[in-house]
């Protein structure tokens, strides 16, 4: 559905996007992830045909965004970071205007508007001026505007930014509903956000793609194995000797004593192994008391920090070498 190759966008001498390449298959839900200013919005704006790239190729459904902008625009629904709303208009008349603007045939307009209103749970607010709506509702109007002409591809720039937790859940649910019928690309700098909604992540930093993979695959590749925390009552020195020697345990540290004689130990497991049964058996067999054990997968948060740090360190090293 999307093919991006060596995309470059420069503002003056400053490259906002610097050689980005990725593909998105039809029906996929993909997240663009990166810190603020990484080039996510610019990449998305190029894909919608809102502005041309300085260099490189961007195609939507086989149509080049520069060569065939109208073919691209009829296939893309776009929700910018700030939803493009006319505050003085009522929701329904705004959507009617958008339908006309998007070239929806006259006889289908009414039906499309009503369907967008119902899909975005806006029926009750349909005759209210947009300026009177809460931020969450405005975001829904933004989404309704994006799906109005039934596009194959939805591009949503930070769809949940600035919303309260309840609104975030609603919008996320809405995106999940829409994902069934559309290919979706959404961006975020909040990492937990994106992992809830997407199948695949493209991590962008400083205008470059630093990783592109499924969430699981990324955590496998960059996160190593699971992190296991155990709480054990017993002698610290003996623990310190025993835990690292267990098969499947890559690293073990005693972090602190939680209460008298109870120690919290952080273990890193080797990839693709669940060390919990082994650790539990070993601890109990050695005569310690096992108080608690939790496993956590490495989150996107850490992977992301690790990825962007790596890039920054590389850049620093290059700077020093130069």
């Amino acid at each position: 559905m999307i093919h991006v190759e060596n995309l470059v966008k420069r503002y003056g001498s400053n490259a906002a996007v610097d050689g980005v390449s990725f593909d998105v298959a039809a029906g996929e839900v993909v997240g663009l992830l990166g810190p603020n200013g990484a080039g996510k919005s610019t990449t998305m704006r190029i894909l919608t045909g809102a502005m041309p790239p300085t260099d490189g190729i961007a195609e939507v459904a086989g149509h080049d965004v520069v060569e065939a902008p109208l073919d691209v625009k009829s296939r893309v629904g776009y929700l910018p970071e700030v939803p493009p709303l006319y505050p003085e208009m009522k929701v329904r008349s705004f959507l009617k205007f958008v339908a006309e603007l998007k070239g929806v045939p006259r006889r289908d307009r009414k039906a499309r508007v009503e369907s967008a209103l119902s899909r975005c749970w806006l029926e009750e607010r349909a005759d209210q001026p947009i300026e009177q709506l809460s931020k969450g509702y405005k975001q829904r109007v933004g989404l309704a505007q994006a799906i109005l002409h039934d596009p194959e591809l939805l591009i949503l720039d930070e769809p949940t930014s600035g919303l309260d937790p309840r609104q975030i859940i609603e919008v996320r649910q809405l995106i999940r509903d829409l994902a069934g019928d559309h290919t979706v690309v959404l961006s975020s700098h909040i990492l937990s956000e994106i992992s809830a909604s997407v199948q695949r992540v493209v991590v962008i930093n400083e205008g470059k793609v630093v990783a592109a993979d499924s969430v699981d695959e990324l955590s496998r590749r960059f996160g190593g194995g699971d992190q296991v925390t155990v709480q054990v009552r017993g002698d610290a020195d003996a623990l310190r000797r025993m835990l690292p020697s267990l098969p499947g345990v890559a690293d073990a540290r005693i972090v602190e004593d939680v209460e008298s004689d109870v120690w919290r130990c952080d273990l890193s497991a080797a990839p693709d192994t669940d060390v919990r049964p082994r650790v539990a058996a070993a601890v109990v067999n050695a005569g310690f008391e096992l108080i608690g054990m939790t496993r956590r997968e490495m989150g996107l948060e850490e992977i992301f920090l690790r990825l962007t740090d790596e890039v920054n360190q590389d850049a620093d090293a290059e700077d020093q070498a130069a």
Binding site: T48, A50, V76, P80, E81, P84, L85, Y86, L101, G103
Partner: peptide
């Protein structure tokens, strides 16, 4: 200023 230019620019207009 309102960002509605984006709507016009991404529509077949």
């Amino acid at each position: 200023r309102r960002g509605t230019m984006d709507l016009l620019l991404t529509s077949p207009v």
